[in-house]
Design a protein around this nucleic acid. Structure first.
Length: 547
RNA sequence: UGGGGCGUCGCCAAGCGGUAAGGCACCGGGUUUUGAUCCCGGCAUACGCAGGUUCGAAUCCUGCCGCCCCAGCCA
């Protein structure tokens, strides 16, 4: 598999390798505080992708330094999703694995007079940080001796202080134009049970102190992260420059994925889940990996998508069409079946056969994959949409006295439209052309259209979930995403499905002319079939264009 | 009006001083018992703007303009 990706990160790695770097080591470092989404897939494909391409390795490292938000449930979900995408990792490791070492480095910083225990409240720290245009002011505790700081820090660790009583701060520069360098907090007190270390600790290191050290300890050759951490790089470097480590990874930033009609934040997804706006983290409308999977998206499609969007430092908002293209491309090889989503009964007035069976391949371009049998009888269902009393321009389906071919079956001609008292069409009475049987057609008739159908006698009733975008707005923001929710994002219909699709062990199907569908991983059973529409088929029907 | 980034076709994105790749979308046409797939063709005299350097600039320099990120004891 020759890769030809030339993004700036790969260029940088090639250059480092040419300069003597002895191996590529990356890491994917999620906090286990939620499920992964497709934005994470971009990072996963990048980190694991470059390691694979350059013969290196990738750590799956959980950044679990905030016990209030993290849990094993999320660890398990993340492991499952990365595995699903098809990547193999070193570890997994946890930031909490390094709590002892981290603590020792913190003491080292104190001994070197590079960190101090500050008794200011959170509010005072904020107030004295200054603003974007004004420098901050130094904490009154900044001048404490190393010995006193060490003593205090040990008491913090021993649990002698309440949450918020004090913190450990880096001693850098309160006048730095970079707010992150104005004596950032390194450790805070949290009397909370950690999902892995339990109650062993009551002080927890902050991200900026933790991440760079974990990278160094694991020998990460390229620490790839998103753009919002650019301002943190000086701090990343400062920490490693001021402790006794012999290795200092470079942090390289790229832009996160923006996708139309969705949000890209674990926090916002959590809000949707907790607020009951969706069925859970794996709701098929969610752009979480679990949601995409349940919707019927396969890992190859996600990887293809990530390959196509590239890696740069530009802000971006990718159109949904790009994702849909990748889904269809991947599913193009799925077996075909017929399902009528909105059934309209058709009675063949001149059909007297019984037990007739028609042959249909699983895939029209792969006859070697065999096929299935379709029963045929005098009562069928067709798509309500496939009949129009007054056809629009360029309509190629059934009309009064018009003819159409039933896919893999016969040509039929509509002779009568039966309506109920409300004027709604209740059934169509049609004549079939006996000599037009698919494969042995001697009728010489050339109908303009071909439609899908199922035999009412053998069709299986199924719940089909038609999923639309979760938001009406192409760009929902944290401020607007509640009001931007699309209230019609889930439409459930009672469909009639060809029995072979239900009987088959295959989960993914193209229901001809209506899209790609998957058996719902939670709710589907042979007795009560439930399908989700992964993506509709491309539709170039344009009555306004052309002749 | 601090600091850090980014501005190439509707969207994504190549390009790294030698005269604008590719993909998605869109528009034509062909094949087709899925208005699908597949195939062929079209689609930036132009690179945020203005100057400058150069034989030559999207690429270098200067100055503007626009957009994004940063004031958690979150990551």
């Amino acid at each position: 598999m020759a890769e030809d990706l030339t993004d700036f990160i790969r260029q940088r790695i090639r250059s480092d390798l040419a300069d003597g770097l002895d191996g590529v080591v990356t890491r994917f470092p999620p906090e286990p505080n939620g499920y992964l989404h497709i934005g994470h897939a971009k990072s996963i494909c990048l980190n694991f992708g470059v390691a694979e391409e350059f013969g290196g390795k990738t750590y799956l490292r959980f950044d679990d330094t905030n016990p209030l938000k993290e849990s094993d449930e999320f660890v398990d979900a993340i492991v499952r999703d990365v595995e699903w995408l098809g990547f193999r990792w070193e570890g997994p490791t946890f930031a909490s694995d390094y709590f002892d070492e981290l603590y020792r480095f913190a003491e080292q910083l104190i001994e070197r007079d590079k960190a101090y225990v500050c008794d200011l409240s959170a509010e005072r720290i904020r107030a004295t940080r200054g603003t974007l245009t004004e420098p901050g002011t130094e904490s009154p505790w900044r001048g404490r001796s190393a010995a006193e700081n060490l003593h205090l820090f040990r008491r913090m660790k021993a649990g002698e202080f309440a949450d918020g009583a004090c913190v450990l701060r880096a001693k850098i520069d309160m006048a730095s134009p970079n707010l992150n360098m104005r004596d950032p907090v390194l450790y805070r007190i949290r009397h909370a049970t950690h999902h892995r270390t339990g109650d062993a600790w009551c002080i927890y290191p902050m991200y900026d102190f933790t991440h760079c050290i974990c990278d160094a300890l694991e020998g990460i050759s390229h620490s790839l992260c998103t753009l919002e951490f650019e301002d943190h790089r000086p701090l990343y470097d400062w920490v490693l420059d001021n402790i006794a480590v012999n290795y200092h990874p470079p942090q390289i930033e790229f832009s996160r994925l923006g996708l139309e009609y969705t949000v890209m934040s674990k926090r916002l997804f959590a809000t949707l889940v907790d607020g009951g706006h969706v069925g859970g983290w794996d709701d098929p409308r969610m752009s979480t990996l679990a949601g995409l999977r349940r919707r019927g998206v396969r890992p190859a499609a996600v990887r293809e998508f990530c390959r196509r969007i590239g890696v740069t430092k530009s802000e971006n908002r990718v159109e949904l069409e790009m994702l849909d293209f990748c889904l269809r491309k991947d599913l193009q090889t799925a077996p075909r079946a017929m399902a009528v989503l909105d059934p309209l009964r058709v009675v063949l007035v001149n059909y007297e056969g019984g037990g007739e069976v028609l042959a249909a391949p699983w895939h029209p371009q792969h006859l070697e994959r065999g096929g299935r049998e379709l029963t045929f009888s005098s009562t069928l269902y067709i798509e309500r949409e496939d009949f129009k009393e007054t056809p629009p321009r360029k309509y190629r389906r059934l009309t009064p006295n018009g003819m159409v071919r039933l896919r893999y079956g016969y040509i039929i001609v509509c002779e009568e439209v039966v309506k109920n008292a409300n004027g709604d069409i209740e059934e169509l009475r049609c004549r079939y052309v006996p000599e037009s049987k698919s494969g042995s057609d001697s009728s010489n008739l050339k109908p303009k259209g071909v439609i899908h159908w199922v035999d009412a006698a053998t069709a299986v009733a199924a719940e089909v979930r038609l999923l639309e975008r979760l938001f009406d707005s192409a760009n929902p923001t944290p401020a607007t995403f509640r009001s931007a929710l699309n209230t019609n994002s889930l439409r459930t219909v009672q469909a009639q499905v060809e029995p072979a699709a239900v009987a088959s062990a295959e989960p993914h199907f193209q229901f001809e002319r209506t899209g790609y569908f998957v058996k719902d991983e939670r709710d589907h059973s042979a007795a009560q079939p439930v399908f989700n529409r992964t993506v509709s088929l491309r539709d170039s029907y344009n009555p306004k264009a052309g002749p």
